[in-house]
């Protein structure tokens, strides 16, 4: 399960390949349950957004499945380690299959890069295995020579369906 450490950016402006590698690495850290390292990929003012509605534009006055800042994400990560986190006894596991991310926009002056990644995500616990199909949109910027996620948006193809537990991160 080992994995090479994060490679430093070669230049101040990331290449498309560096952005793609970053998105792939994020998914791999989740699948390997290296959640502290995963959280470190997020900027301090980052949000993780999973809309509830198809083509949702507003996270504030329309409900979402998740719209979480780094504090809430860190609470999730801490909870997963907890001795009395009964819904994670036994633990869930997950698996991402990503299509190669596409770099949708790059604006070096604004330090803003956006990628789009269709994916299949499997979450499993005990006898249950559930497949989700989604598109991940990453809004990325460079901070102190490292790529950081400012916003990760996960649009489920069936965002308005009735789900059972979704306990890890897509």
């Amino acid at each position: 399960m080992s994995m090479v450490a994060e490679a430093p950016l070669k230049n101040a402006v990331p290449t498309d390949q560096e952005l793609i590698d970053f998105v792939v690495r994020e998914a791999r850290l989740i699948d390997q349950q290296r959640f502290d390292e995963w959280l470190d990929l997020y900027a301090d003012d980052a949000f993780y957004w999973m809309p509830l509605e198809w083509n949702q534009t507003d996270p504030r006055l329309t409900c979402s499945l998740m719209y979480e800042d780094k504090l809430l994400l860190s609470i999730r990560v801490e909870r997963l380690k907890g001795a009395r986190t009964f819904s994670q006894k036994p633990k869930s596991r997950c698996h991402h299959v990503l299509q190669t991310p596409q770099v949708d926009s790059r604006d070096a002056a604004a330090n803003s890069y956006v990628t789009w990644t269709p994916m299949h995500y499997v979450e499993t616990r005990l006898e249950e295995q559930t497949l989700y199909a989604a598109w991940a949109t990453h809004h990325i910027s460079v901070e102190n020579g490292r790529l950081k996620i400012k916003l990760k948006r996960v649009d489920l193809i069936n965002c308005d369906a009735a789900f059972g537990n979704i306990q890890l991160f897509m």
Partner: peptide, 18 residues
């Protein structure tokens, strides 16, 4: 609602497990 009652809610996960 999303922190307590969503299928992605950690509070919801606690309850459903029970």
């Amino acid at each position: 609602n999303r922190l307590i009652n969503a299928p992605t809610s950690i509070v919801g996960h606690d309850d459903l497990e029970m």
